[in-house]
Amino acid sequence: MAKYYVFYLGDVLPQPKAHLVQVSHSANAAANLGYPAVLVSLQKDFRSLNPLNLIAPFRPRKPELKLLEFYHLQSRLKVAPLPMPYPIDRIRGKLTDSNTIACKYYLPVHLKPKTQIVHSRDWNFVKAAVKNEIPAIYECHHYENKKYEPEIVNQRFLQVAVTVADTVRENLIRNGMPPEKTVKLHNGFNQFFYERHPEAARTWRQQLLTEKRDRLVVYAGALHTFKGIDLLIEVASQLPNVQFALAGGPEKERQAYQEIVQSKQLENVALVGYLPHKNLASLLQAADLLVYPHLSGEAANFTSPLKLFDYIAAGKPIVSTTIPSLDDFRSSPLIAGWCEPDSATELAGCLERVFSAYPQWSPDHIHDRALVEQYSWENRISRILDFVDPSFRPQKLI
């Protein structure tokens, strides 16, 4: 019987949410490394009523094309959506909650016999795995107020708790996670972002640039104030000869910022919306500069921005604000320019300096592969498994 490296997330796929991207790409990387990885999610559509799905809910299979293209995953990964038919999550109650169904029924009855190890950001699922004597890896990327139960965290089946910032690691330890089981590792990038897409990049430049504006600055990520979007729009008003392209966010947020741009009569800001990864990679490679304008504040202490690593893979000069969670990169040649957060004048000046320091756009611009590869999802999975007891590590496929 095949046994799997299970990545669990208690949500429906695909959706443009950062934590879903992170887990999906982690599972994809494990599959690329040769592990029998399966991405376990929830199924809440009409297929959840299929009697076969209810009788045999854990049936790892090839992902649908829609999911592969949405996150740009490779075909070695398998998926197993767990059926959640009515009234699960439609009628409130502990017995009709999808988390209860997954942890109390699907995991011990259907997943356990076929699972080598569990990897999840869902503490309840990790806790259930430990109780069922299944080795588990816990990911936590934000501050938590809950205290971790000693009888769970000290169990040998809880192998490691992984986070992306020193401050979150400290928070985990204060809440009861053993220090020796708690490690910090930055997020990563999908290999597709390292591949060159010169023709698609040229097409983006033809669409976005004009004779008056032949330099392109690209931002990719969520459209929130704390991410620096309002700051970037202010910078655009100071640099009218530079074209700015902002990718990301649901349509409602994109529309709200579009109204702001129009009210300021800015002709050099294009809000291109959420892009599938296959389109986003070429947009990043079309840029003269990539910008990460995050503001100061609590989020700046723990964020490990997924898009920063996509930027690194794209090979273009990067300008970033000096937020605490990126201190590890302050001496890295991968970041071309730094400036203090919260100041449009500072950021505009930094962009101008980096423009002057780097040559005109070329489709071939790329960072040294050895520097970049340390931030791949595959390298991150390998490093995580180094912290797992050899007797609990998943076995690779032949």
Rank of each mutant, 00 (worst) to 15 (best):
Y5C: 09
F7L: 08
Y8V: 07
G10K: 01
P14Y: 08
A18P: 04
Q22G: 12
A31Y: 03
L33H: 01
P36C: 00
L39C: 00
S48E: 03
P51K: 09
R61W: 00
L67K: 13
E69V: 02
H72L: 10
L73A: 07
K78F: 12
L82S: 02
D89M: 00
I91P: 01
R92V: 12
I101W: 07
C103W: 01
V109N: 07
V109K: 15
L111C: 14
K112L: 14
T115R: 03
I117Q: 05
S120P: 06
N132A: 15
Y148N: 07
E151W: 08
Q155C: 13
L158F: 11
V160W: 03
R169K: 15
N171Y: 09
H186V: 14
Q191S: 13
E195T: 15
R196K: 15
R202H: 07
W204A: 00
Q206R: 12
L208G: 05
D214P: 05
L216A: 05
V217Y: 03
Y219W: 04
Y219I: 06
I229N: 04
D230A: 06
A236L: 02
A245W: 01
L246D: 01
A247H: 10
P250M: 01
E253G: 03
Q258H: 04
V261L: 13
S263F: 12
Q265P: 05
A270M: 12
L271M: 02
D288P: 06
F302W: 10
A313Q: 03
A313C: 04
V319N: 07
S320Q: 05
I323M: 05
G337D: 09
G337L: 03
W338C: 09
W338Q: 08
A344P: 08
A357D: 14
P359R: 14
Q360C: 15
H367R: 01
V372C: 04
S376E: 09
W377I: 06
I381D: 02
S382F: 10
P390E: 09
Q395G: 04
